[in-house]
Amino acid sequence: MSAGVAVAQAQTATAQAKVHARLRGVTRVFEGKLSVHALGPLDLDLPRGEFFSVVGPSGCGKSTLMDLIAGLSPPTEGTVTFEDKPVAGEVPDGIGAVFQEDASFPWLTVRDNIAFGLRRAGVDPAETQRRVEYAIGFMGLREFATAYPAQLSGGMRQRVCIARTLVMQPRLILLDEPFGALDQQTRLLMGDELLRLWRETGATVMLITHALDEAAMLSDRVGVMSARPGRFIDVITTGWSRERDSNIVADPAFGVVTARLWSLLRGESLKAIGAKGA
């Protein structure tokens, strides 16, 4: 009996060590004339090295969830921990965030945009150059290295933002609909790049997306959120191998996962747009 308990405890301990980010009883209420209960309460464990996606109807608090994990805004209740340290009020070292909007600095060239964070952090110039040149090559920005963001397409600018986050070597990468503005083909290819980046860096990735196929194709697990206030109504494990790419869309299992996501989301999406009979 006691041996069994010990084993169980040991398993819990290893499970905890593997958890990279943890949310417990997290809620977020925006106070104001009309208080908005945006999120929760919800619990989430992100294991180290996992590719986790979040899907949900519009306005369900997906971006709020990302802000909470990144430390960009505090939870109203509950706790967020990253690498066993509480996240409170500021962005912890080791988290990189890419936003939905174009966040490239228009006054800097692509190369200087990507080097920006490293220079502010005082990383030595040789190392900065090495990482920046690598990221430029990795994200396919070689021929645009001296261009300004205004000269680039939306997709290229988003790559600059991803590269700028990547060079900081974050252990947890948070992406808030980074491909939201891109066309479907470009999205699929960017998805491949994201998978390559994820495999190569070994980082934990949390991707927020409104595209069910994107979530199904990229993720180890997909969290499905309810209409506001957002909670996880289910978490789907896809079961893909680590070496996957966009060709997976031809796999019958891909259709099954996508269909499952939609069957979970359909009712919530109807609620979100205020339809009757949801």
């Binding site: 960009l72 962005v91 936003f99 966040a103």
Partner: peptide, 18 residues
């Protein structure tokens, strides 16, 4: 000023002066 630039500054852990 585009608010996402300020969010980016926070996400990059810049000091206020930076």
């Amino acid at each position: 000023i585009n608010p996402v630039l300020l969010r980016t500054s926070r996400a990059m852990r810049l000091t206020q002066w930076q």
